[in-house]
């Protein structure tokens, strides 16, 4: 026989599980649920676009994009709320698309630092209009924001572009180098493409990192997950399964040692000469990412943060510019 106390505990746990499912089923037809936010610039003012859910009970989901030009983000949110007949609910936002200008990036900073969106919300940069990206017709019943969220995950796997969410934005933008890498999205004939990153420092766009640089950043951050990459020396693609970084410093030089797991595209292991080619490819990608950032004095690999954390006594002796920091990259296959 179960004791009364045990029964009560079971009932409480069951209630919690049931309520967790019931809470999202509240009728949303009268709420302006925002799933995507576009931050751009128009004539020096902020162009705020929101993709919101427009649904009546029993009907399939439809999404609409509304825009407003404003001086402050809060004013734009209020104006759009009135336009959509209610208060904007930003907590469900899946994706934020931000243009490569200071006005849009400043609005992004405000959104992130004032807890207006969930920390899981993905952030994408774009060199074209954020409103156009948000308005692009997505296939199926899904919103553009949801498709972009999936595209970012696919980009991580296929091209090794590291994703960025609000949590990572907060962590990196407040860190030592204050450099954030935002995956950059473009749209061609209705298809989204994410192969590059926009490096942002102190709320200003710095440079657009190419595919090789993005791969280097992903490898150092350990965010590689079955990324496929073309190795020129092999004239074939290989799959980079995972990478783990060991960071050390000696004689003022930074040493990055990557423990790499990789396999051939046909899922077989790599031969010795193939490993050498992949090693060179990986070293080149990491060095390229570092150099590309260093050219713009942007610490894209967050090396300074690591030095400050693990070698605080050498932190004060670092050269004033990141480009003067000697870097050594090693790869070890596991």
């Amino acid at each position: 026989m179960l004791k009364n106390k045990t029964i009560m505990i079971l009932v409480l746990i069951t209630m919690l599980i049931v309520f967790d499912y019931l809470v999202p089923s509240i009728d949303v037809s009268k709420r302006a649920i925002v799933v995507g936010i576009g931050l751009g610039e128009e004539k020096g003012r902020l162009l705020l676009s929101v993709q919101s859910l427009s649904r009546k009970k029993g009907e399939t989901a439809e999404y609409q994009v509304n825009s407003v030009t404003c001086d402050e983000l809060v004013d734009g949110i209020e104006t759009l709320g009135l336009t959509l007949g209610g208060r904007l609910s930003l907590a469900h936002t899946l994706t934020i698309i931000v243009e490569d200008n200071a006005t849009a990036l400043s609005a992004l900073d405000y959104l992130a630092k004032n807890n207006l969106v969930s920390d899981r919300t993905y952030i994408l940069a774009t060199t074209i209009s954020a409103k156009d990206i948000l308005s692009a017709k997505a296939t199926g019943n899904e919103s553009t924001s949801a498709v972009l969220r999936e595209s970012q995950e696919i980009a991580k796997t296929r091209a090794g572009v590291p994703p960025c969410n609000v949590r990572k934005y907060l962590s990196d933008s407040a860190g030592v180098g204050r450099c954030v890498n935002l995956p950059a999205v473009t749209v061609k004939e209705g298809d989204f493409s994410i192969t590059t990153c926009l490096s942002v420092k102190d709320g200003e766009p710095v440079f657009l990192m190419d595919e090789e640089g993005c791969l280097g950043v992903s490898l150092v951050e350990g965010r590689i997950f079955d990324a496929k990459t073309y190795v020129k020396d092999l004239d074939a693609s290989v799959e980079l399964v995972s990478s783990k970084l060991s960071f050390s410093m000696s004689d003022g030089a930074v040493k990055l040692q990557l423990k790499l797991s990789a396999k051939a595209f046909n899922s077989q292991g790599l031969e010795k000469d193939e490993q050498l080619a992949v090693e060179q490819h990986v070293v080149a990608a990491v060095t390229h990412a570092f150099n590309q950032g260093a050219t713009h004095d942007c610490d894209v690999l967050h090396i300074c943060q690591r030095v400050k954390a693990f070698y605080p006594e050498q932190w004060s002796t670092l050269p004033p510019q990141i480009s003067l920091l000697p870097l050594q990259v090693e790869v070890r296959f596991v």
């Binding site: 992130a112 949590r167 860190g175």
Partner: peptide
């Protein structure tokens, strides 16, 4: 999770379970 960005993050326990 948040590093130096923790200074902007309220309600620690709630935010952590977001992930």
């Amino acid at each position: 999770s948040y590093g130096d960005g923790a200074v902007f993050v309220d309600n620690a326990i709630s935010r952590l379970t977001d992930f």
